[in-house]
Amino acid sequence: MPKRALSFVLNGERVEWEVEASDTLLRALRENGLTSVKRGCEEGECGACTVVIDDEAQKSCLVLALEVEGKSVLTTEGLPAAPGKLHPIQQAFVDEGAVQCGFCTPGFIMTTYAFLKAHPNPTDEEIRHALSGNLCRCTGYLSIIKAVKAAAAALSNQSGAAEGGR
C-alpha cells in the first residue's frame, strides 16, 4: 500500500510524515518515537494513549493518523517549557504521588491538560467526570484527584503573570 503524506503540528513544531492510510494516530506517533503515548487496549477504553488535538483530549487509538492533517497535536513530551523543566501538571503528578507504575500517567496528564484549559477551577465532581475515561490500576485515583487540584492551583497562580509552558 502506498504511503500517504501527513503534515501537522506536533508539540509546537510542524512535521511531515508518511503514514499508511490505515495507521492510527497512536501507531504513527509511537513509530515516530513518541513513546509516551501508550498502547493499553486499542479500543478507546483505557485512555493510556490520550493526546490533545487542537485543545481537545482524544484517544489516539481511535483517531486515524491522516485525520490530524493540519491540526495541532500535543503529547506529554511537548509540555515542558524548557528541557527537563516539568510543566505544572507534570510537577503536580510527581508531588502528589499520582505516579506509580506510570503507564497510564501520560494519558492522565494530557486529559488533565485539556480539561484544565476549559475548567481552570474545577470541582471534585467535574474532575471525576473529566477523568473517567482514563484507567489506572495502581493508585486508586485519590492521589490523581489531588494532583489535578494542585495543578489547577499552580496554573491559575501562573496565569496571573505570563503563560508558562504551553
Partner: peptide, 14 residues
C-alpha cells in the same frame, strides 16, 4: 518518587 519525573515526561522506556 525517584522515577516519577521520567514517567511524567514520557521518557521511561517500557
Amino acid at each position: 518518587r525517584s522515577d516519577a519525573s521520567e514517567k511524567v515526561l514520557g521518557a521511561a522506556k517500557y
